[in-house]
Each structure stands twice: as C-alpha cells, then as structure tokens.
Amino acid sequence: MTWSGVLLVTAVVWAVSLIRSVRLRALVYSLPLPMTLALVSSGHRVEGAQVVGVLGLNLFFVTVAFTHQRLRWPILLADGAGIVVYVALSAGLLAVDIPFGVALTGTLVLWLAALLALRRRAPARPAPVDARPVADARRDGLPALLKLMVIFVGAVLTTLLGAVLRGMVVTFPYSGVLVAVEARRQLVEFSRHFARNSLALVGFLTAYHYLQDVSSTVALGAGWAAFAVVVAALHLPLRLGRPVRAVDPDVRADGVRESP
C-alpha cells in the first residue's frame, strides 16, 4: 500500500486507542478500510485464499492472546508470533488453488463452530478481570504526540511487511499488529468480539468476488453494502434483546417504592 495506507492504518489505530468499549473497538477494527485500500492500490483479485485469510486475522489475535496472556511473552514478542503464524498461513494458501465456493463454505463452518465454542466456554471461564481500573488499563504513559508518532512508525513497518505477501496483502492485519498492543489487557474479550464481526468481512469479500469482473467500483460498493447488512444482522438483535426497565415514578433509585 501507499502513504495513504500508512495514514489510514495510523488513523484506525488512533481511533481504537480512544474508544473505551471493547465491543466498539472490535467493530471499528473490523471495518474493511485497509482491505478496500489494498484492493484499490494493488489490483489483486479476491479468490478463495483471501476469504480464508479472514480466518488468518482471527488466528493472529488468538496467537497474540495465547502467547501474551498464557505464556507471559512480552506483547511485542507475542505480536511477532502472530505475524509469523499469519505469514506461514498465507504462504500455504498461496501455494494451492482453493475454489471460492469451497473456501467460503469452510470459512462459514469454522466461523459457526468457533462461535458455538466461545458461547459454550463463556459462562464456565469468564474473562479474567484486571485488578487495575479501566482507565489505568488503557493508559500507556505516552504523551499524545509521542504515541501518535509510535503508531505512525508502526504503521509504516506493517505496511512494508504486508506488501511482500502478494494476494494476501488484502487481509494482512495492518492495524491489528498495533491494535493488539493497544488492547493487550483485553485481548481475549477483543478477540471474541472480532471473531463475531469476521462474518461481516466475509460478506464484504464475497460480494466483491462476485462483482469484481463487472467493475471494481461496483464491487467495492456491493462489498460495503454486504458488510453493513451483516453487521446490522449481528448487532441489532443484541440491542433489541436488552431488557428495558420501565420508569415508575413511585420507585426510588434504590428500588424501594414510596407510599402514596
């Protein structure tokens, strides 16, 4: 990608660093902005390998979370392990020709299996609670300008690395390398939310694949529309399913009903 890609990655990571909600962080990171720029600047086609590459994005975060939180590796070393795993997966995917239908079916099956497994494990193994307050967990001690410079340098390095991956440049975790550092104390929860949102990225790539021979502009428009529809389908039921507490004027804030 070009300098515009570097600036885009910097903007995404900076935005994520300012968001308090882990769910919203994962949603912002899920936006197919780097994918769009990679497709526009590289001219690569979307085939089966790129769809499986979405699983590679999830595998990247799982690797970073496992090595950092379970094995107690420093976050930068854990980040490096995640990159190695993604690059190795990419090399394997580029070595074989995967029909798009097979890749799409396999990805959807694995996505559903992963979601069911996460849902089953969630009550039994809740995410560990950091003893530090949320505000302290998000503070890294860097002044805002210095932090922006660090993010910018990291964006340059990840962009240069992603450029050597040929077709897998489309799904390379450009901003993910830096987001993992930013969300290092909430990696498990972040990874779960991102895994759920991955279906929207699959929708984006699927729409692009079937319309890329018509026009890249049409394909991108359809891809973003598919992404929006899937995101809405994933998140609206959660919001609509939340219990709404009726406001009773005779009930005080502590739940005790006042006598008339």
Rank of each mutant, 00 (worst) to 15 (best):
R45D: 13
Q50A: 10
V87K: 10
V46Y: 02
V102T: 08
L145S: 09
V12F: 09
S198A: 15
V256E: 11
L27S: 00
L57K: 09
T217Y: 08
L165F: 00
L236S: 07
G80A: 14
R257C: 05
L146T: 12
V251A: 09
S175A: 15
V102Q: 03
L104V: 04
W224G: 01
L220I: 11
A246H: 04
R245Q: 14
F194H: 03
R119A: 12
V9W: 10
R245W: 08
V156A: 14
S21K: 09
D136K: 12
G255R: 12
L238S: 14
A124S: 12
L112Y: 05
S90F: 02
R184H: 14
L27K: 00
L93W: 07
T217N: 11
A95F: 05
A49R: 10
S90G: 15
L104N: 07
A232W: 14
R192M: 12
L118I: 13
V9D: 06
W14F: 14
A144V: 10
G255A: 12
A207G: 01
Y210A: 06
A183W: 00
T36H: 03
P128K: 11
P143L: 08
S175L: 07
V181D: 04
A226C: 07
L55N: 07
P99T: 01
T10N: 08
V134T: 12
G56H: 04
L146G: 05
I75H: 13
V51E: 05
R132G: 05
L234T: 05
F227S: 01
F172P: 06
G167A: 14
A15T: 15
R120T: 11
T158Y: 01
A11M: 13
